[in-house]
Amino acid sequence: MKPRVIFTVVFFALGLIIAAVPQSRTMQYRVGADDMLEDLHGKSQFISPDEVAAFLVEDNPVIRLIDLRSPEEYQAFHLPGAVNLPMTDLLNSDYRYLVDQDMMLNVFYSNGSVKANEAWMITSQLGYRNNYVLEGGLNYWAEVIMNPERPSSTSPDEEIARYNFRMGASKALGGDAGAETAPADVEAPLPAITKRPAKKRASGGC
């Protein structure tokens, strides 16, 4: 076969392929792969359930919980004050104001932490800031906040203090532990929840 015929056939084949595939709209990655890997390793996107509980108990207006599960699951149970943004609507332009903003500290959560991590990766690659992930998701939340495990009486003070806090938070946020009385060997039945500064300053301006 003549080389020109081969060239023509090859180019037509490539042209057909490129005409058949959907137009590639490569997203503009504002976060490089290296930075993303570093963030993932540093686990800097995680907010612990204790931190979130503290925010909720003190009614901190800066925090916004975003429930990534389906509306049905959201109806069945959700964290106090959480808004429902199903994963499928994450990039819906109607809800972009929720995830691309400078005012609030968003905490994504789902049952585990996989979905929330995905949401965090997508939004941070789009350059949206102030988004975090609830460490361990609702499962871990239920384990440590709603039904905190009572430490043994020989546990270090910090652990007992953390247990106290979790009992208090559970009571305030309507968990099972709230119904019980605080254990006798714990000095303060209701923990003092100290006011914490917001993790990220809400930046205003025009």
């Binding site: 020109r4 023509t8 180019f11 037509f12 490539l14 042209g15 057909l16 490129i18 005409a19 058949a20 595939v21 959907p22 137009q23």
Partner: peptide, 18 residues
């Protein structure tokens, strides 16, 4: 039209020109 379809048209045009 999409860039791909335009590319195919352009390849057809080039072949015709050749």
């Amino acid at each position: 039209v999409s860039d791909g379809v335009m590319a195919l048209l352009f390849i057809a045009m080039a072949s015709g020109a050749f």
